[in-house]
Simulated assay, not measured.
Amino acid sequence: MTETHVRELVDLLEVERLEDNLFRGQSRDIGTHFVFGGQVLGQALSAAQRTVDPAREAHSLHAYFLRAGDINAPIVYSVERARDGGTFSARRVVAIQHGQPILNGSISFQVPETGFEHQSSMPEVPMPEDISPMQALPPEQLAKLPEKLQRWLGVDAPFEFRHVWPQDKLHPVKRPPYQHIWFRLTAPVGDSADLHRSLLAYASDFNLIGTATLPHGISYYTHNVQMASLDHALWFHRPFRVDEWLLYSFDSPTAQSARGLARGQIFTRDGRLVASTAQEGLIRLRG
């Protein structure tokens, strides 16, 4: 089933062209009740990439989540060709569902060139082979949980995650606002750099805003907590493959006014910094 799930994800991110600058993507229920934000990010990037000279590579993405997406309906992506310069191209993308925008995004592309280089060092953490795989909940324990949690925890995922410091998200305890997680696609895909960037955009939404909940002993599963992504930024630095192990290193410098900020750096196993992320999310205590 692993290859099937990966193929389904690749197909999900390969949006259908309706017109020169108009695309349609399907929605997939991964157990989150609403469309997963990473799906919209990945599809928006995929749509924008279809309107740019293949020699130009996406290097930054900035997006605002405006409304929750309906998992039972497709999403239309309208791409505006804002600029094509000598080296850079800019695209604006609006994701539309039921006649309303659910995401506004801007994506910048660049012709690769050489220049000065430096990067942060990868944290010293165990390699993925030295970390036990995540264990699925036993069926009898899963059956005792609310339906929403059953859908989320019971769905097989195309990505494998290995937490350097595992946490029981059903019974979270307070801990410092940082974490390190190895992840990879569970089956190989082709060599298309555009596809790998879209897949990374999809995966970059996992665990990011959850880092801001760590000092407070709560999680997405806490019954009286409302959480939602408000925006998302992603920068691509160097080549990578998502079907090889990548280390996602997170920290959260602040939370206030029912919002939390989280940042991430993504490294290859040999220590190359390949992408950076930032996200602000709603973290609201209800009742």
Rank of each mutant, 00 (worst) to 15 (best):
M1Y: 02
E3F: 03
E3I: 03
E8Q: 14
V10E: 00
L13S: 01
L13M: 02
E14L: 08
L18W: 05
L18Q: 08
L22D: 00
G25P: 00
G31Y: 04
H33A: 12
F34P: 00
F34Y: 03
Q39N: 06
Q39I: 06
Q39A: 08
G42T: 00
Q49Y: 12
D53S: 00
P54Q: 11
R56M: 03
E57M: 09
E57A: 08
S60K: 03
S60P: 03
Y64I: 09
Y64F: 15
D70V: 00
A73T: 01
V76R: 13
V79N: 01
E80F: 08
E80I: 10
R81C: 05
R81V: 05
A82C: 02
A82Y: 07
T87N: 04
S89Y: 04
S89R: 05
A90N: 08
A90G: 02
V94D: 09
A95D: 01
I96G: 02
G99A: 10
P101G: 11
S106G: 06
I107G: 08
S108K: 06
V111N: 07
P112N: 13
T114H: 13
H118F: 14
E124P: 04
V125N: 15
V125Y: 14
P126Q: 13
P126V: 14
M127H: 11
E129R: 00
D130M: 11
P133L: 15
P133Q: 15
Q135F: 09
P138G: 12
K144Y: 12
E147L: 13
Q150G: 10
R151E: 12
L153G: 06
V155K: 12
P158W: 11
F161S: 09
F161Y: 14
R162W: 07
R162E: 06
H163I: 00
V164L: 04
P166A: 13
H171N: 15
V173C: 03
H180E: 12
I181H: 07
P188G: 11
D191G: 01
S192W: 10
S204Q: 12
D205G: 12
N207P: 04
I209C: 05
G210P: 02
A212Q: 07
T213L: 15
L214H: 15
T222Q: 09
T222D: 09
N224G: 01
D231N: 14
H232R: 11
D243F: 13
E244G: 01
W245A: 04
S249F: 09
F250K: 08
P253M: 06
P253L: 07
A255Q: 13
S257P: 02
S257Y: 10
R259D: 07
G260D: 05
T268W: 04
R272K: 09
L282D: 01
R284K: 04
G287A: 05
